[in-house]
Amino acid sequence: MKRVEITEAAAKIVRQLQEAHGELIFHQSGGCCDGSSPMIFPEGELYLDESDILLGTIGDVNFYMNKDQFEYWRHTHLTVDITEGRGASFSLEIPLGLRFIIHSRLFTEAEGKAFNKL
């Protein structure tokens, strides 16, 4: 059981980016324009501390979200997918003409119980 998962198509892009950029992390953005999207950066690029929650590891990439935002997301399961598009952020997939995107669903009862303590 995982809070966050990734589709095969998105995982393929992650592997491609890893070859080009090395170790990576995902961070879920909030706010306007290109916000509410997962962004991928070289590890160490974005300063992370205890205000960022590690939701899980997809492939071998850690997925983080700011704690404040997590409070509103904690009851939902996330799947990282990839779609065609253009974003204006610094996320590494953008030059490929692709964007990572989040699909969400409510936790099942079992997932809810398992993850309640986080």
């Binding site: 953005s29 706010g31 290109d34 916000g35 962004m39 974005l46 700011n66």
Partner: peptide
Amino acid sequence: TGETTTGQLIMQ
């Protein structure tokens, strides 16, 4: 002007 994660990066 944009979203929070890029905002944080730019501030860094």
